[in-house]
Design a protein around this nucleic acid. Structure first.
Length: 261
DNA sequence: ATTGTGGCCTGCCCGC
DNA sequence: TGCGGGCAGGCCACAA
């Protein structure tokens, strides 16, 4: 699920753990530890630390710790979830509709007071890292400025969609958010990036921000107007034209050949 | 350097 | 009911 919207929800959840001390670390899955990290190292680095804050850059969740501790970076891949168990009266807002098997827990922090902040990820495409390379990420999509977007787009000849998915240029947009944004903006995802006129770039900057805000308010990346039409032989919710289904930027792409030009 | 492709890993859904 | 194939919202290594 997670694109920047979902990760922001996770961040707010993790924020409830600020001020707590980490009594123990559970890292049962070596594969989930990235950057050469091992269970021993991560346990040693985190045990006894106090959580002082959280941050999010694109889809990367950062957990700040006190003292000289490293920063904890959490990535959720396509199927990762975050849960905070055992802190009454919290509701398990992030899971419930789908299954949540204990063997899918890949990483957890046991906090003083008994709460447990855990990552569940059936597909194991997410991961945990210490001091993740945040400088490798572009500006966050939610608050991207026109100047930042201009820089991000540059003079690239890549398809517009591929550029918007490039986390080193703009951080946070995933497949669904990009399709929804371009559908709302009336831009063809296959357009060479540098073919955009200045007015189109300006409109796109606003559209990125407004789309993220709108879908966040609705409750997720999957709540877009285009979402219901993301299947074969569907029609555009705006003008009724048959939707186009293509692979762009390596991802399944739905767009309207009539109003997205 | 930029762009495109394949693969990672596993669950789920659809059609037979 | 069982099984195989295709698909999945992310990301990284690698090739051209």
């Amino acid at each position: 699920m997670p694109e920047l919207i979902e990760v922001e929800v996770y961040r707010r959840l993790a924020d409830r753990a600020v001020g707590r001390r980490i009594d123990a670390v559970e890292a049962p899955d070596d594969w989930f530890l990235k950057g050469g990290l091992t269970p021993n190292v991560v346990e040693g680095a985190l045990t006894g630390a106090t959580i002082t804050g959280t941050d999010r850059i694109g889809k990367l969740l950062l957990v700040h710790l006190d003292g000289d501790r490293p920063e904890l970076g959490l990535r959720f891949g396509m199927t990762g979830r975050l849960a905070l168990d055992g802190e009454a009266p919290i509701t398990d807002l992030e899971y419930g509709s789908k299954r949540d098997l204990p063997e899918w827990d890949r990483f957890a922090l046991v906090l003083d007071g008994g709460a447990r902040l855990r990552m569940a990820d059936p597909r194991r495409l997410g991961g945990v890292e210490l001091d993740p390379p945040v400088e490798a990420l572009g500006p966050d999509a939610w608050t991207i400025t026109l100047a930042q977007l201009r820089t991000a787009l540059g003079t690239s000849t890549a398809p517009l969609k591929a550029r918007l998915l490039d986390q080193s240029k703009i951080a946070g947009l995933g497949n669904l958010l990009v399709d929804e944004t371009l559908w709302r903006a009336g831009l063809d995802p296959a357009r060479p990036t540098r073919s955009l006129a200045d007015a189109e770039v300006k409109a796109l900057a606003r559209r990125i921000r407004s789309t993220v805000t709108a879908l966040f308010d609705r409750g997720g990346s999957h709540t877009g107007d285009l979402q219901a039409a993301r299947h074969r032989e569907s029609t555009c919710p705006r003008d009724g034209a048959p939707l186009q289904r293509r692979t762009i930027g390596g991802r399944t792409t739905y767009s309207c050949p009539v109003h997205q030009r």
